[in-house]
Amino acid sequence: MLKILIAVVRRDLLLAWRRRADVFTTLAFFIIVASLFPLGVGPEPNLLRTMAPGVLWVSALLATLLSVTRLFAADYADGTLEQMLLSTEPLTLIVLGKVTAYWLVTGLPLVLLAPLLGVQFDLPQGAIGVLSLSLALGTPALSLLGGIGAALTLGLRGGGVLLALLILPLYVPILIFGAGAVGADAAGLGAGAHLLLLAACFLSALAVSPWATAAALRISME
């Protein structure tokens, strides 16, 4: 069981490495979106500090949304996805492997880069730590839920916009708990409850979405 998971993760990581430009576009998008907000609302430090958690979380969410369309697209186009559906290994595990690799190349860099952007918004040190932690818990859930949308919109006209419409409502709890954790910490309330709820979101996404994604893939491949 673990073997197939590792095989798929390795495969997708190697593919991502050979196409590394894609990874950087997602990251660049994240940075640019986050940097646009100060230009829009003005350079007032206090305002920016209050806005920072929400802005950074929304940017991470949009960056995920932008890149998750590619999760199955290439495999769908060249016929590999069909072969995955015919594997003797459970499709849920293959899906989980693909999502894991996807998170490692798009989610993890966001987590690592977020402190830098936090500094840009003059977040206090403690809040920056909470920001990284909340992103580390939240972005895997974003990737998992995004997988369902990517599988459902496979090969459809205007798939990207449709994907946003399907998935954004599902992202609401993660956004609330994630950005809320940073906000609560900055306000001196302690981020524990938020982070635990975020972890619960991640675990329930882990429980539901590989199955939903596998089912969606079978439906879309017909």
Partner: peptide
Amino acid sequence: LLYLGHANAVKDEF
């Protein structure tokens, strides 16, 4: 079962 479809399932990058 072994199935070979229209598409080759060959990755350009490999």
